[in-house]
């Protein structure tokens, strides 16, 4: 990655979000013996939403895990950039996998406060919980939350991380109509302040703001 120089404009609060990028360069990925995809190249820029579509087992989750740096590519490179050039994944990526990463014996507020301490951000957890519509569940144990409420709490953590790139794995799964609307709204508010997202989904995805692009992974023979 040496020699890569990106835009080096001075940082502002909005700039933290507005100047970032994630570039896949000829990425191939193999799971076991099977080559899931080869030479995948795309660039994710501020305000963009990439939908990764394809059948089960086509490698949608693998694209997200590669982007998050949680798994390694067979070949190719992933480049990350922020306001002052090449950056590491850790400062840019917020990942929402299949699990919600909640501790059952903690209350919703305690769980969120823990992550805020880990991120070292002094955001008020109550504000975040209001933002995702969990005002009444602050002191409920996360094990007692409904599937939709758990997802909301996970979104509160995504927001708390203040990372510009959201990687979402089936964010609409197990949500009712209101939950889906809220999720779309949360994604929109993230895109509107200059964030970007890669969303893995096997079904049609409701409209979001921002520039939408689509990658369809074919299931090989």
């Amino acid at each position: 990655m040496a020699g890569v120089r990106w835009n080096t404009a001075p940082m502002s609060i909005a700039g933290k979000y507005q100047q970032h990028g994630l570039h896949f360069r000829d990425v191939s990925y193999r799971r076991g013996e099977k080559l899931l995809f080869a030479d995948l190249s795309f660039s994710l820029l501020p305000g963009e939403v990439y939908l990764i579509q394809g059948d089960n087992g086509a490698g949608k989750t693998s694209v997200l895990r590669l982007a998050a740096g949680l798994t390694r590519a067979e070949s190719g490179a992933l480049l990350y950039e922020n306001y002052n050039g090449a950056a590491d994944a850790g400062s840019l990526i917020a990942y929402q996998g299949h699990g919600n990463a909640l501790e059952p014996s903690m209350t919703a507020q305690e769980d969120l406060s823990f992550w805020l301490e880990i991120y070292d951000h002094d955001t008020d957890p109550d504000d975040l919980m209001d933002h995702v519509g969990l005002n009444d569940q602050k002191h409920v144990k996360t094990s007692a939350l409904s599937a939709g409420q758990k997802r909301r709490l996970a979104f509160a953590r995504l927001k708390a991380s203040e990372r510009p790139i959201w990687l979402l794995d089936e964010p609409m799964a197990a949500l009712d109509k209101a939950g889906k609307e809220l999720t779309a709204q949360l994604i929109n508010s993230h895109i509107d302040i200059g964030g970007s997202a890669i969303i893995a989904t096997h079904s049609r995805f409701p409209a979001t703001t921002g520039k939408r692009k689509r990658i369809v992974l074919e299931t090989g023979p």
Partner: peptide
């Protein structure tokens, strides 16, 4: 590991 907390910690540079 099962809940995903471990991955999240890793992504938070812990």
């Amino acid at each position: 590991i099962r809940s995903g907390v471990f991955e999240q910690l890793h992504l938070s540079n812990v």
